[in-house]
Simulated assay, not measured.
Amino acid sequence: MDDEVMTVLAGVLEALWRINAEWPDKPCTLAKLSKQAQRPMSALRRQLTMLEEAGLVTLALDEGGVTGTVQFTAGGRQMAAEIFA
C-alpha cells in the first residue's frame, strides 16, 4: 500500500478509536463513522473492507448493504490503543 492509502486508513481507525472511547462496547454505525472520519459512505465502505481483511475491524451490514455497524477486533483495538492512546 502506498503512503496515501495508509494515511486514509489511519484516519478511519482514529475516528473509530474516538467513537469507541466515547461509547465503549457499542458497535459504531457507518453513518456516524462516515461523519467523524469525513469520508463519503462509498469510500468508507471500501476502506472498511480493507481494514476487515487486515483483521482490524468487523463489519456488519444490514440487509441491502446500505447501513451497518463496525467495531474493532481484539487485535485492532490493541493496535489502535498503542497508536492513539
Rank of each mutant, 00 (worst) to 15 (best):
G68I: 05
T58A: 04
E14G: 04
F72V: 01
R45Q: 13
Q36D: 02
G64A: 06
D62Y: 10
C28N: 01
S42M: 04
R18W: 12
A54L: 14
R46V: 14
D3I: 06
T73N: 09
G68V: 04
L33W: 11
T67A: 13
T7M: 08
T7V: 11
T58L: 06
Q47S: 08
T7E: 11
R39F: 07
R46W: 15
G75M: 02
G55Q: 08
A54R: 15
A74H: 15
E14V: 02
E82V: 07
L33F: 12
D2Q: 05
D3E: 11
R39S: 03
E53L: 14
G75S: 04
L44K: 03
V12A: 02
R77Q: 12
I83K: 10
V70Y: 11
L16R: 03
A85G: 08
M79P: 02
G65R: 08
G76H: 04
R39V: 00
Q78A: 15
Q38L: 09
W23D: 06
L16P: 03
A74F: 15
R46C: 10
V12K: 05
L44E: 03
E4G: 04
V8K: 11
A15W: 09
E82M: 07
Q71M: 12
L56I: 07
V5Q: 14
I19Q: 01
V66D: 11
K32G: 00
D3H: 11
A21I: 03
G75E: 04
V5C: 04
M1Q: 06
G64L: 05
E82P: 02
T69W: 08
T69G: 04
M79A: 10
K32H: 10
M50L: 15
D25E: 14
S42G: 06
T67K: 13
A43F: 12
A81M: 10
S34Q: 07
M79K: 10
L9N: 05
E53Q: 15
A43W: 12
D62I: 01
L9Q: 06
T69I: 03
R39I: 00
M6R: 15
Q71R: 14
K26E: 13
I19K: 01
G76D: 02
R39C: 02
T73S: 14
E82N: 08
W23C: 01
S34M: 01
E22M: 05
F84W: 10
A31W: 09
G11V: 06
I19W: 02
P27C: 03
A74C: 04
T58M: 09
A37V: 05
A21M: 13
W17Q: 00
I19H: 00
C28Q: 06
V8N: 04
A43Q: 12
T49W: 15
L61K: 09
L59A: 03
S34E: 07
A21Q: 15
T73Y: 13
